[in-house]
Amino acid sequence: MKEQFNTALGNLVEKLQGWFNTIIEYIPNFILAILVMAVAYFAARYVSKAVAKLVSRKVQQDSIKNAIARVSAVVVVMVGLFIALGVMNLGKALTSLLAGAGVAGLAIGLALQGTLANTFAGLVLSFRKKIQIGNWVETTGYAGEVIDINLKDFTLKEADNNIVIIPNKTILENPLKNYSLTTRMRVFLECGVGYESNLEKVEQLTKEVIANTFDQVKQPEDVEFYFTEFGDSSINYLCRFWIDAESMLEKLRAKNKAIIEIKKAYDKEGINIPFPIRTLQFDNKLNVKAPDLQEAFINN
């Protein structure tokens, strides 16, 4: 029994001595690993600020800038951690950590597939020069001013002041019309005049009214005018002209102004803008006082 105790005690002392020797041997590596992590921490702070400043030149959204800066800081810290583990000769631990990170990343990616898709779509949208905050856009059946682009959604304010929140993935996968990319818009105006009208006079008068109403139209010849069809009660035409505008609201105001001025000019010149009229004709010879009809009304 005594021999077994002495053997066990000897093994314990030998094990402790081995651990102590290992600790003494790895103290320089441990100190160097701590220094590496400290350098990585301060480097991450510097890189985060530098990245935020660089991204701010391309991206207006604070949420996007902060997210990119944080991701860059995490990357620097992770690089420092891997270097520190390598300095301490923990190759197996490093391999296990990478394998675990890969499995965890795959599981998280599958679980948050929709969220990650919106996040990456938000990053892509933030770097697109053709989509900026303040632009007037139309997409997926909605039209309005872009008021926010973040990592989750794309926010529009419509003309009626309603807020529309659309997932970033939807914006990236669907067509988008940006009215603010150009400083000019074409106004389409459709109307009709009576069949008794002088069509040459109607065309010339309409062009002159548009040219006199809008400074952007230098002369009547700049206005496009086409008679399009013989309607039920009018000869219809299409009028097109360019204006300086960057939003649909400006376009609507221009169209409203054009309609008012054209109506005034037509009234002054006696040009008729017809509208559907229903005529009730009572020239039949039905005798409502006939005895048979009176008897039928009485019975009913």
Rank of each mutant, 00 (worst) to 15 (best):
S180F: 09
E145L: 11
V223S: 07
E208W: 01
I147L: 09
D283P: 06
L205G: 03
T7W: 03
E208K: 08
A33Q: 04
D244R: 03
V36Y: 07
F5Y: 13
W136A: 05
R240D: 00
A67N: 11
I163Y: 04
K201Q: 10
D153M: 01
N299L: 05
E224K: 13
N135S: 05
D232T: 06
A290Q: 07
T140I: 14
A8S: 11
V47F: 02
K53W: 05
I149E: 09
N161H: 08
T228I: 13
D232Y: 02
L112K: 15
Q113P: 00
K157G: 04
F227C: 06
L205D: 01
V36L: 15
Q216H: 06
V59W: 03
S197T: 12
Y46Q: 04
D160P: 00
F127T: 10
V187N: 04
N174Y: 13
N287K: 12
E138H: 06
G91S: 11
M88F: 12
A159F: 14
P291E: 13
L238W: 03
T155D: 08
V202L: 01
N300P: 00
V71M: 10
E196H: 11
F82E: 07
E196N: 12
T22I: 02
N299S: 05
W19K: 08
I273R: 06
I171E: 09
V74K: 05
I64A: 04
P175L: 06
L238P: 00
A296Q: 12
D244S: 09
Q17H: 04
F127V: 14
L116I: 15
D267P: 00
N168F: 06
